[in-house]
Simulated scan of single mutants.
Amino acid sequence: MTNSAATGREKVQQMLDWTVAEVDVPGIVAEVRDGHGTWFGSAGVADIDTGRPRQQGEHLHIGSAGKAFTAAAVLHLEAEGRLSVEDSVDKWLPGVLNVNGYDGTKITIRHLLNNTSGLFITGLAPELSQRYATRSAFAEHRFDAWTKDELLKLTVSQPPVGEPGAAFAYSNGGFYLAGMIIEAVTGNSYEEEVARSIVHPLGLTHTYARAADDTGFPAPYPRAYSGLFMKEGVAPGDITAENWESMYEEPGLPLLDTTEYNSSWAWSAGNVVSTTSEMIQVFRAFASGSLLPPAQHREMWTTVSTEGGHWMPHAAYGLGVFELDPAVTGGLPLRGMGGSMQGSHCVVVGTPDGEQVIAVHTNTEFKTWKVMFKAIEAQFGTPPVEGL
């Protein structure tokens, strides 16, 4: 483990200041836990109108970092002998995938959780884009609550992108199905199972899976701001994995306040609220193996290549979590989880023993991978990553 005293807290603070100055982020926080204790830093504001600074203990939407919670809940059920990650989807949800070219007998729970199911990239579905892709659509639909039937319909609304197990393609739909399997196996709600398998065992008091009708946060929390919108007039059906970046608004437009917003469309693919300190606690349990038995811990961190999957560079994907390529970390093994949605981006990265961890949050969505890699460089003393 690299010596954080050598890298210095000042380097993390410099990264925070750089992000606000150079990346058009209203506010950013970082919390560090390592052998030298806990440190918290911030830059920018929690509220553009009042200038209120960001603070420790804010409740945050963690986006797709919630996928790790879903994976852990499934693995907890496997440890109890109630399912296997090698079970087919059809075993627990008979017939739900027998549509549009899918075969539920061939797609396993493992495929769902490591994004190799062959399900198409759900985030590009026109049915989702038409509700949120433009500013006008977001204003009209921001408080829409999604039912599980609607999420299932969304999951299979386009044909497969490949055979099960063949390649990585980042699909929220796979995690919707995993959430439905959790409910089918237990008879409990997904939210209850997240609490039973993760929140309660870890003694978390500020972390929960959001209810379908929830549109706010407990205090304290930062305002959320988004500039992630398509140009007005863009047809959702024209958006592809290759051209989506060119479809976005030109930079420089005012950010839209998206704090009060129904995020039930994310559900078991990432609809968890937490704090930076509790996310560090969760990461340490996931990374080190203190929450799950050894067999399930190994499964969580058995990774697949993400090459060609239109996702994070220099990373391999496990079950809801990622590992960075040692070639870009100077040989230091680093694990993580993270996610982004309108007005929020959270990433947590640390050593496999959980002894050195940094959690970073911006009150706007993902802007550039430079933020995460600069945070890693500042905390862990890794070399700069070129070409981002």
Rank of each mutant, 00 (worst) to 15 (best):
66 G>C: 12
265 W>F: 08
14 Q>W: 15
74 V>R: 00
63 G>H: 05
188 N>T: 15
198 I>K: 00
71 A>S: 05
14 Q>S: 13
388 L>C: 03
259 T>D: 07
71 A>Q: 06
51 G>K: 03
145 A>I: 02
386 E>G: 11
17 D>T: 03
169 A>I: 06
216 G>A: 15
217 F>Y: 06
318 G>Y: 05
180 M>E: 08
177 L>R: 02
65 A>C: 07
191 E>G: 12
26 P>K: 01
155 T>S: 05
24 D>T: 13
350 G>L: 09
283 F>D: 02
79 A>Y: 10
320 G>H: 13
264 S>A: 08
289 G>A: 12
102 Y>D: 10
76 H>P: 00
17 D>H: 00
9 R>P: 03
275 T>P: 10
388 L>A: 09
257 D>Q: 09
70 T>N: 08
121 I>G: 01
240 T>N: 14
53 P>M: 11
21 A>C: 03
287 A>K: 00
185 V>G: 04
302 T>K: 02
57 G>I: 11
59 H>G: 09
106 K>D: 13
346 C>G: 00
264 S>Q: 11
313 P>T: 14
352 P>N: 09
332 L>H: 01
275 T>A: 00
114 N>D: 10
6 A>N: 14
134 T>N: 05
363 N>W: 07
362 T>E: 12
33 R>P: 04
1 M>Q: 15
364 T>G: 01
153 K>I: 15
242 E>I: 05
367 K>A: 04
175 F>Y: 15
232 E>S: 01
282 V>M: 15
59 H>L: 12
199 V>G: 08
371 V>M: 11
23 V>I: 10
263 S>P: 02
167 A>L: 01
261 Y>S: 05
339 G>T: 01
54 R>G: 12
70 T>Y: 09
95 G>N: 03
134 T>S: 05
344 S>A: 14
203 G>I: 13
127 E>L: 11
138 F>H: 07
176 Y>H: 03
163 E>Q: 08
273 V>R: 01
195 A>M: 12
